[in-house]
Structure formats: structure tokens, C-alpha cells
């Protein structure tokens, strides 16, 4: 059974595109057939984060307008043969596509793919409405900041208000454990308590993400905390029950010594 999942947040810059790239790649690693759709028309970025920016021929608007078939516009990933990207159009705007057209497209893609991931634009206007139209469920990305959480709460309201209520699962991104320990950052439990939806992932603020994005290589599955956190999200999406990571992770000499004393 295939699933259409929208990655959304309300506020911009909290990590929707990075999450889409890593969760999509992770699901492909788990041998699922996956297509990522960049629905941010006019502000194309998912191709860049995936390292596929030089391969674009056709885009989402071409497909919707019938200038090409979906197969022609989808770019095959260079690492995984079961992963595809449908890029957004850079020179058009959000009104080039309607929610009905997006729903028709995602329904067509269900025939061929296990997972269809939609990278949603920031905001709650037409771009958002387009992205959620065909989705079965949502991954709601937020950071432990007041503005991002308030916007996330608005999104939950909108997802529940639609004709088809969509389940939203929470991803708390960019957690800094050093600040959490000092009490100067909300914990993932705090965020979940405020928003009152299921938590599906907690991703630490990890410099490896910046490095991976620079290189156009998703870091999911790699041997660092963020890579593991993303892989755990993928497993939970497929229905596996995975315990949450200990984001304190660093086991240096001093923390081991202090660990001994705590016992």
C-alpha cells in the first residue's frame, strides 16, 4: 500500500527540505520505491540538497500542464535506483498548479511508488494547499523556538480542518542538548506537550547536516547522531517501533568519568 506524505512546517527555514531529502533517501535505503516532489514552485531547492541540480529537464509544472509525462520529468537518484525526484519549476509561481491537479498527480504516482514525499513551501497559502491536497499524512517539522511552534500549531489546525483530516506526526529539529541541559531550550517533550501530537523524530543540531547539504549528499544512515535520527524516523514511518536516541551521544573521556560518579 503506498502512502503520500507531506513534509510541512508553516515557518520557513526549520528544515523541511533537509528532512524531505533525508527521509526520502532513508526510505529508499530500506528498499522502498520513493519519489520526492518539490512543491515549492518559484523557490526550487530540493534538487540542490539532493545533489541533482544539473540533471533537471522537465519540472512539476510541465507535468501538470501536460508538456511531458511524469516519467520524463522524474530524475533518478545517483545513489539509489529506487529513488526519484520530481523537481519544482523555478520561473513560475504557486498559482501554476491547483490542489485538484496535485491530487490527481499523487494518485497517479501511487500506482508505481511505495512512498510519495511532498516538500511543502513555507506559509499557509496556495502552495501549502497544493502540497497537502493529495497527502494521506503529514510530517510536521519544527524547531524548539516559540515562533516555529506557534506556526506549527496553526498547521495542525489547518490539517484537521480540511475535508479529509490528516494525521500529523511531529519532528523536532535542531535540538541543542547543551542548551537543553542548561534549561535554555525547550526539550522535545516540552514541544510535544504543547502541540499535543505524536512525536516521530527528534533530530539534533548537527554540523554534519551543513556539511552534507554543502556536498549535496543526504546524511541519513551515516554514523552520526543526525544520520541515525533520520534513519529512525524512516523506520517509524514504515511501522517499526524504534526507541528514541539519546541525543547526549558524545561519550568522551570526561563524560564517561562523570557518568561513573552519577552511578
Amino acid at each position: 500500500m503506498s502512502e503520500v506524505i507531506v513534509v510541512t512546517s508553516g515557518k520557513g527555514g526549520v528544515g523541511k527540505t533537509t528532512t524531505t531529502a533525508n527521509v526520502g533517501t532513508g526510505l529508499a535505503m530500506l528498499n522502498k520505491k520513493v519519489v520526492l516532489i518539490d512543491t515549492d514552485i518559484g523557490l526550487r531547492n530540493l534538487d540542490l540538497v539532493m545533489g541533482l541540480e544539473n540533471r533537471i529537464v522537465y519540472n512539476l509544472v510541465d507535468v501538470v500542464e501536460g508538456n511531458c509525462r511524469p516519467k520524463q520529468a522524474m530524475i533518478k537518484d545517483k545513489r539509489f535506483s529506487n529513488l526519484y525526484l520530481l523537481p519544482s519549476a523555478q520561473t513560475r509561481d504557486k498559482t501554476s498548479v491547483t490542489p485538484e491537479q496535485m491530487k490527481a498527480l499523487t494518485d497517479e504516482l501511487r500506482e508505481e511508488f511505495d512512498y510519495i514525499l511532498l516538500d511543502c513551501p513555507a506559509g499557509i497559502e496556495q502552495g501549502f494547499q497544493n502540497a497537502i491536497a493529495g497527502a494521506d499524512r503529514a510530517l510536521l517539522v519544527t524547531t524548539p523556538e516559540v515562533s516555529a511552534i506557534r506556526d506549527a500549531d496553526r498547521i495542525i489546525g489547518l490539517l484537521e480542518a480540511g475535508e479529509t483530516k490528516k494525521r500529523a506526526d511531529l519532528i523536532v529539529n535542531r535540538i541543542r542538548m547543551d542548551m537543553v541541559k542548561k534549561g535554555d531550550m525547550m526539550t522535545m517533550e516540552d514541544v510535544q506537550d504543547i502541540l499535543a501530537i505524536d512525536l516521530i523524530g527528534a533530530v539534533p543540531d548537527d554540523e554534519n547536516i551543513v556539511i552534507a547539504t554543502n556536498q549535496g549528499e543526504p546524511l541519513v544512515g551515516s554514523n552520526n547522531l543526525a544520520g541515525q535520527a533520520y534513519m529512525n524516523i524512516c523506520k517509524r514511518i514504515t511501522g517499526e517501533d524504534v526507541p528514541f536516541l539519546d541525543l547526549n551521544g558524545k561519550s568522551g573521556f570526561f563524560s564517561k568519568i562523570s557518568g561513573l560518579f552519577k552511578k
Binding site: 516559540v146 534549561g183 526539550t187 504543547i194
Partner: peptide, 12 residues
């Protein structure tokens, strides 16, 4: 009061 708790209370 820790700023994390201040944020949580304000948001709630």
C-alpha cells in the same frame, strides 16, 4: 526562571 520554561509557559 530558565528561558526554556518561560518559552513553554508563554506558548501554552
Amino acid at each position: 526562571k530558565n528561558s526554556g520554561n518561560v518559552a513553554k509557559d508563554r506558548l501554552k
